[in-house]
Deep mutational scan, measured.
Amino acid sequence: AEKTGIVNVSSSLNVREGASTSSKVIGSLSGNTKVTIVGEEGAFYKIEYKGSHSYVAKEYIKDIKDE
């Protein structure tokens, strides 16, 4: 089941290729951006990003809701 969340950062949140802080950064999301969460892996959520799937750190996503 998909969930949505809100990016909870003051500046921007790195979007990564994989579920690791050493993964390549492929983009960023600004605070209060709504994201669609399709899964989770460790400390990361797998999200829909620009037509494919990428990862963001869970600690920076708030207001998780089931869609």
Rank of each mutant, 00 (worst) to 15 (best):
E48R: 10
V25I: 14
E59F: 07
E59Y: 07
S54K: 11
A57Y: 10
S22V: 09
K34C: 11
G51M: 05
V35S: 00
V7D: 02
G51F: 05
Y49I: 03
V15H: 02
I6L: 09
K3Q: 07
V38S: 04
D63Y: 11
S54A: 15
E17Y: 06
V38F: 06
V25A: 05
I64G: 06
A1F: 14
S28L: 12
N8K: 12
I26C: 07
A43Y: 08
N32P: 05
S23H: 07
K65C: 11
S22Q: 11
L13G: 05
Y60H: 11
K50Y: 09
S52G: 15
K24F: 05
S28D: 06
S11V: 13
Y49G: 00
I61V: 08
T21Q: 11
L29F: 03
S12K: 12
V38D: 01
A1Y: 15
E48T: 08
Y49S: 01
E67W: 08
I37D: 00
A43M: 11
A19K: 03
V35W: 02
K58N: 02
I61M: 04
S22D: 13
N14I: 14
V7M: 03
Y60E: 07
R16S: 06
K24W: 04
K58R: 07
K24S: 07
K46A: 07
V35Q: 00
T21H: 15
T33L: 06
K46W: 05
N32Y: 11
K50H: 10
H53T: 10
K46S: 04
K62P: 02
G42S: 04
A19Y: 04
E48C: 15
Y55S: 00
S20C: 08
K46P: 01
I47S: 00
T4I: 12
S10N: 11
E59T: 07
D66P: 12
Y49H: 05
T36G: 04
N32A: 08
S11E: 12
G42W: 03
K58V: 04
S54C: 14
G31V: 11
G42T: 03
V56C: 03
A57E: 15
S23A: 13
E67S: 13
A19Q: 03
S10C: 15
I64Q: 06
V35G: 00
E67M: 13
H53N: 06
E59A: 11
T21V: 12
G51E: 06
A43R: 08
K58Q: 05
I26Q: 04
G27A: 05
T21G: 09
I47C: 03
T21W: 13
T4D: 05
V25K: 05
T21M: 15
Y60R: 05
E40M: 08
A57C: 14
S54N: 07
E67D: 12
K34T: 09
I47N: 01
S28V: 14
E67R: 12
I64V: 13
K34F: 09
S30D: 11
V38L: 11
E17L: 09
G18C: 13
S20R: 06
D66C: 14
F44C: 04
G39I: 02
K50R: 10
I26V: 11
H53W: 12
N32E: 08
K34S: 07
I61Q: 00
S11I: 12
K34Q: 10
N14L: 15
V7P: 03
V35I: 10
G27Q: 02
N8S: 13
H53K: 05
L29M: 05
E41M: 08
K58D: 00
T21Y: 14
Y45T: 02
V38I: 13
S22N: 12
E48Q: 10
K34H: 08
E2H: 15
S22Y: 07
F44P: 00
S52P: 02
E17H: 06
Y45V: 05
K62R: 11
S30L: 14
S30P: 15
N32C: 14
G51N: 07
S10L: 12
V15P: 01
G39Q: 03
F44H: 03
S28H: 14
V35A: 01
K65V: 13
S28P: 02
T36S: 08
I26N: 04
Y45N: 01
V35H: 00
K50A: 10
G42L: 05
V7W: 02
G27Y: 02
S23T: 06
E41A: 07
V15C: 06
S11C: 15
G51V: 03
T4N: 07
T36E: 04
I37V: 05
A1W: 15
I6A: 04
S52D: 08
Y60V: 04
E67Q: 12
S20L: 06
K50E: 12
G18Y: 13
N14P: 15
G5V: 05
K24H: 06
D66W: 15
G51S: 06
G31Y: 11
S20E: 06
L13R: 03
Y49F: 12
I6K: 06
I6F: 09
S12R: 14
K62V: 14
S54L: 07
A19G: 05
S11A: 10
G51T: 05
V15N: 01
N32F: 10
S23I: 02
T33R: 05
G27C: 05
T36C: 11
V25F: 04
I64H: 07
V38E: 03
S22P: 02
S22E: 12
T33F: 06
I47D: 01
Y49L: 03
V56D: 00
K3Y: 09
E17Q: 09
K46Q: 08
I61E: 01
V35D: 00
I37Y: 00
E48M: 14
N8Q: 11
K24G: 06
V56T: 01
E2K: 15
S28T: 14
E2Q: 15
E67F: 11
E2P: 15
V9A: 10
G5T: 04
S11Y: 08
H53V: 13
S52Y: 10
L29D: 00
K3R: 14
T21P: 13
K62E: 10
V56M: 02
K3V: 09
N32H: 10
T21D: 13
V9N: 07
I61D: 00
K24D: 06
A1D: 09
K3L: 10
V9C: 15
E2S: 15
I37F: 00
K34W: 09
T4K: 09
E17F: 07
T4P: 05
E40D: 06
G18S: 13
K58W: 02
D63Q: 12
S28M: 12
S20N: 09
E67K: 13
D66R: 08
D66Y: 14
G42D: 07
S30G: 09
G5F: 06
T21L: 14
S11Q: 11
S54F: 15
S12C: 15
S30M: 14
H53L: 11
T36M: 09
E17G: 06
S12F: 12
I47Y: 00
A57F: 09
K24E: 06
I6T: 08
Y55R: 00
I6S: 05
S22G: 10
F44S: 03
S30A: 14
G18I: 07
E59I: 12
F44Y: 10
E17C: 09
E40K: 04
I37C: 03
S22R: 11
N32Q: 10
V35P: 01
I47P: 01
Y55N: 00
T33D: 09
S10M: 11
E17A: 12
